[in-house]
Amino acid sequence: MKKSELVDALAEKAGLSKNDAKKAFDALTEVVLGAVAQKQDVELGSLGKIKVVHKPAGTARNPATGEQMQVAAKDVAKFTPGKALKDAALGNA
């Protein structure tokens, strides 16, 4: 599902205009990105949770050349699906 399709479905489900649904979706995106940038976890109800995880520095192998290289430490966003999302994906919803 593309963003425009998601906005259309949201507008229909919530009884909003498409413009208001797009504004709500964009605002939600901005809030989630802001929270992740501040290293805060974000719970999305039954959809799941976005958690910021620290990955320590280490070594990795370049698959093209086989050369070992250093990888810097970094923070990454990790999404863990909720039960409702897992059930929907398995057709159990």
Rank of each mutant, 00 (worst) to 15 (best):
A77T: 07
V53N: 11
V76W: 02
G48I: 00
F79M: 09
M69W: 09
K18S: 12
L28S: 13
L47R: 12
K39L: 15
S4F: 06
A89Y: 03
T59F: 07
K2Q: 08
V31R: 06
G91K: 02
E67C: 00
V52I: 13
V52N: 01
V52Q: 02
T65V: 04
G15I: 05
D26Q: 05
D20L: 05
A84T: 12
A73W: 00
V71P: 00
L33I: 11
V32S: 10
L33T: 15
P56Q: 02
D26V: 12
L47H: 10
K83L: 06
A73R: 00
V71M: 04
L16T: 09
L90D: 14
G48V: 00
K86T: 06
V36N: 11
G91A: 01
R61G: 13
A27H: 06
E5N: 08
V32Y: 01
K3S: 06
G48P: 02
L16C: 09
N19C: 07
A9G: 03
G82E: 01
K83Y: 09
K2F: 03
E5G: 10
K51C: 02
K39V: 11
V7Q: 02
Q68L: 15
F79N: 04
K22S: 13
K3G: 00
A57F: 09
K3T: 10
F79R: 04
A14Q: 09
K23D: 09
P63S: 08
A64C: 05
M1V: 12
